[in-house]
Structure formats: C-alpha cells, structure tokens
Computed example of a mutant assay.
Amino acid sequence: MRQLSRGGRRKNDRIDAAAAACVAVLHRDARSVDPEGPTDILALLDERRTNMSNSRTRLVNQLHALLRQLFAGGAPTSLTAGSATTLLRGFRARSGVDRTRVGLCRDLIADIRRLDDQLAANEKQMAHTLDEHGTRLWEVDGIGAVTAARLIGRTGCASRFPTAAAYADYNGSAPVQIASADTDRRGFSRHGDRQLNSALYTVAMVQTRMPASAGRAYYDKKIDEGKTLAAARRTLKRHLSDHLWRIMLADEKRRYRLNQADSASAA
C-alpha cells in the first residue's frame, strides 16, 4: 500500500519518504527515530577509515610499481613508508627518467606517511567513542577498536532486528540451502552487508588462532562432529553473529535505562 502525493508539486525522494512514513503511522508499524549519537559517529569513522585504507592500498601499489622499475631485483610486496625510504636511500639515479621516478616515489612515501598518521588518529577517535558508548564488545576475544567500531556502526540500532536470525540474514552469516538433483547441503551466503560480514570473519579467524578462546573451543567441537574446516568456520561465524547481536542489544538496553535514570534525576 502506498500513499500518493496530493499534487501541487513534482514528486521526489523526500515526498516519497514522507508518504511512506504516513502509511507506516496509519498501519501502526512505524519505528521511532532515535537521536544521533556514538553509533552514528562510529559509522562515520568506519566509512572514513575504509576510504583511507583503500587510498593507502592504491598508493602502495603505485609505489611498488615504480620501485620495480628502479631496482632490477624488484621490491618487497609488504612495503611500508619506512622500508621504501631505506630502499631508496642507497639508490643513485643515472638518468632523468630515474630521477623523476625517485621524485614520484618520495611524493608517494609522504602521502603514505600522512595516511598512516590519519589512520592512527582515526583508530584513537574510535576507541574514545567506544568508551563513551560503553560497549561490552571489548570483552570478546579478537575484537579491537576498529572491528568494534565497524560492528556497531554498520549494525546501528540492534533492536531493529527482531531475532538473532534476522540479524544473521542481514550480515550474510546465515547459511543458505544449496540443492540440486543429487545433493542437498548448506553453503555460505553472498548477500547481506559484506563489510559487516568481513568483520565477523575477522573475529572468527582470530579466535580460531587463540587456543584458549571460546571461539576456538566451539570450532574444535564442530570439527569433532565431522564438519569440514570451511563448514566449521562458517558455523563459528554464525555463532558469533548471534553472540555479538545479543551483546549489542544488551548494551542498547543498558544505555536506555541509564538515560531514563538520568532524566528522572534531572527532573
């Protein structure tokens, strides 16, 4: 059902959004709009970090290509600004073309250093915002400031997902059924928020490398049950999705109670 524009002006996205909101209110299934806060800050910081990381990768690739042209043996693939500077320190350009390449390399190194500083500042701001948020995601093995910021920022309001299964479907960790004439099995989904899915995968992989973690115990249990390594990792990722959603939901309820208490005391 859709409420159409009343005319008088051309329809646009804002008019469509207002119409959809009116219909939702009439059907009593509208959701309240929460004021912006730390969750929105984390989403902005995560998006900014993604853009900076992509830019840094592009700069490093350009630097590596230039260094391969300067050095007969090539350059290491795991380049940093410091290692590239050390590599250039003993190089003597013998032509105008090589001098241009060296100058471009130095420009790229300066750009990489600048991005490294900005990424460090971005992570520091994430950690400060997470402290304000008061999340318990810090307590989960394999989750640092960057991963926690992505999980919270891209999840948004955890209570908008009615069940853990709905959240798993949103982040793409819910398995999908793959059926054909002779097989009927479950595989991984390529749908959902891929950035959020990537964060879950990172946590799962870190935990499988930590012998004392709860995630490694769960992973080993699935292996003992006969699952393949890939299937055990997918199962662990879905298990983490449920666990992290419950933590974020509990954090949200706790913040709500604290805000209610502060409002009551202020009154």
Rank of each mutant, 00 (worst) to 15 (best):
T135D: 07
A199T: 00
S32F: 15
A165H: 11
M1I: 08
A17R: 10
Y170E: 08
D46S: 14
R10F: 14
V102T: 10
L119T: 03
L137K: 07
K237Y: 02
D184A: 09
G103N: 07
R194L: 04
N171V: 10
T77N: 14
P175W: 06
I109L: 10
T183H: 11
R254N: 06
M210R: 15
V60H: 03
N61T: 07
D116S: 11
R160E: 03
A250Y: 01
I223M: 15
R89N: 14
L258K: 14
R136D: 14
A217D: 01
V140W: 06
N171A: 04
W245G: 04
R254D: 09
D193N: 08
A231R: 11
L108N: 09
Y256E: 12
M205I: 10
F161E: 05
M52Y: 12
V176R: 14
L108M: 12
Q3P: 00
L79Y: 04
G172L: 01
M52R: 09
T129S: 12
R113T: 10
A65G: 08
G7N: 10
A264T: 05
C22Y: 05
T77D: 14
H27D: 08
C22N: 11
P35T: 04
A266T: 05
A212L: 11
A199V: 01
R89L: 11
D16P: 00
R234A: 02
L229H: 14
A20F: 05
Y201C: 01
D220R: 13
A18S: 06
H243L: 11
L59T: 00
L236A: 02
D131T: 13
